[in-house]
Design a protein around this nucleic acid. Sequence first.
DNA 1: TTGTACGCGTTATCAC
DNA 2: GTGATAACGCGTACAA
Lengths: 346, 346
Amino acid sequence: MSHKKKVTIYDLAEKINYSPSTISRALKDHKSISKKTTKLIKKAAQEMGYRPNSLAASLRNSKSNTIGIMISRINRPFISSLISGIEETARLAGYNVIISQSNDLFDNEVSNAKVLCDSQVSGLVVSLSMETTNYDHFRQFEEMGVPVVFVDRVPDQFNSYRVVIDNYRAGYDATKHLIDEGCKRIAHFAGSQKMNVYRDRKNGYLDALRDAGMEVDEKLIYEFYTLSSEEGEKATQELLSLPDPPDGLFSSNDTAAVSAILCAKKNNVKVPEELAVIGFNDDPVASIVDPSLSTITHPAIKMGEISAKRILEHDPDSLDKDVAEITILNTDVIIRDSSRKKSKQN
Amino acid sequence: MSHKKKVTIYDLAEKINYSPSTISRALKDHKSISKKTTKLIKKAAQEMGYRPNSLAASLRNSKSNTIGIMISRINRPFISSLISGIEETARLAGYNVIISQSNDLFDNEVSNAKVLCDSQVSGLVVSLSMETTNYDHFRQFEEMGVPVVFVDRVPDQFNSYRVVIDNYRAGYDATKHLIDEGCKRIAHFAGSQKMNVYRDRKNGYLDALRDAGMEVDEKLIYEFYTLSSEEGEKATQELLSLPDPPDGLFSSNDTAAVSAILCAKKNNVKVPEELAVIGFNDDPVASIVDPSLSTITHPAIKMGEISAKRILEHDPDSLDKDVAEITILNTDVIIRDSSRKKSKQN
DNA sequence: TTGTACGCGTTATCAC
DNA sequence: GTGATAACGCGTACAA
């Protein structure tokens, strides 16, 4: 049982006595081919089971109609939704999507970039690894005229498309919410301060405190590397053991926030009465944990859609390469039970 | 600022006075090229910034070193972990990974299959859409000699690689566990009976009941389409309103199981005392919900790794196309608080 | 409106 | 050990 040989436009040409070029043109509805021949050719193509060889087309046009995605890990709610948004948009435009994970390691990111560049992707969507502070490995795309869109975790100095949320504002709003609920000592779980997202959120937190005339207590601020539940659990334990424990907590992600809630419960500390908690991302767990977790929305799918669109609509001839096009999306505070000290349900 | 032109092996050849073929061979450590020239050529390639054009190579070899993935939706815990496992394995072997979502629609699956086939993927990993009962769109891969690996949601009659868990056994074990905990009336949330996974789990459930001499009550069995939390909530409400409500529930996924727990709590029905619950998948929410949800493990990453390996190790010359190679992975019952009627903590 | 001829970058085959 | 040549399948000036 040998494999069916592929039918090419040459086979078609021979079969119905047209030149390969006519076939080629007809197949993509070129104006210069008469309706009749076009129809004829398409019919023949159908009958002979012709299938275009996109590899050949890509080589010829030196563009692959493929969007490359570089992320840390796929199996996280925010990331997988982001990818979902990209894929959906790309597919509708006839683009494929290649993914590669860095596992938050810089070296992986660099080698993945190389692979994707060599694969001639038409564009790249990137959410940086935790370790990345050097962005030279993205230059190669620039040099090839391949648009790069940074999403969420973006570099500070690199001219390119950027799709982000207003992390500062979100951090500010989250903290402000806790203040409004009556919190007097608010702790913060921050992520690596090398990353824009965590740095901005922390700055929002700090400014919200200052604007409210509250003192910043460094003992209440934790800088985590991964914001994992282990880290969250440990830090919460420490916080609750303080002589003057916090009565509020703003965590830069939901994972750590949830672990804080669970840890508080275990220590018989009432949430939200004794410790109000707000997280970040609105992961599925946020609405499941008891009490349900207040959090900040993170429009993952939408960010994915926009990122893909940036690439699809990218004009290669556009001048002004020096202008960074940045898109900032809104976030909302979702108030659930974990932070409702005053206001009661609804 | 024009784009840097690409350096080809011809440029290299011209520059250092060797033929393109020698360059080509040296670059891939062909035996017949002397160590010295190989070294020389590689050095020159480095200096001139040569980058291989994988598109051209793919065209020439008519293989793309790319694995295509077809799934329903990326942003679900099981699926994203599955993809993560595939990607990791593929990348280490120098393969790329293309993903496409069907959104559980048959038509999407068919058109995605066409796109991936035309993209000349070296292999395909598929988890079927909810609607799929016809598998003709996978024939085209067979005809091209492209290996297809079905994962988790697999067809009943299609000779191909298959990577699955023992859904029957898992369903049996889950039910048996509830029986052992003393449940007398056990309800079941099943998924579409067109899908192997849900059908097998249900059969396991039924047999476990029978083996225990318990009667099967159709009123306690729900067949859902998506096993969403909405469906779970509604059904739980109905179950709890029965004159003789169940005291146990085996749900074919965690999403519906969690909604059942929440619904029970809302109705002041004690879990597990009055209603013991066990789910399926071990999603992150399972350990967060209160009481924590007993469930069945679903080795997503491992299934992804195995699927990728099946493709990487596929021998195109292998005979016996008629033999389906099927891999069955073990699952475990994870006992948490939602089902511990008798045995107390630890 | 259609055909001719060449190039995209690589690699396999056959020579030397 | 190395070189010349012909493909892989398609698209596109240029010609007719």
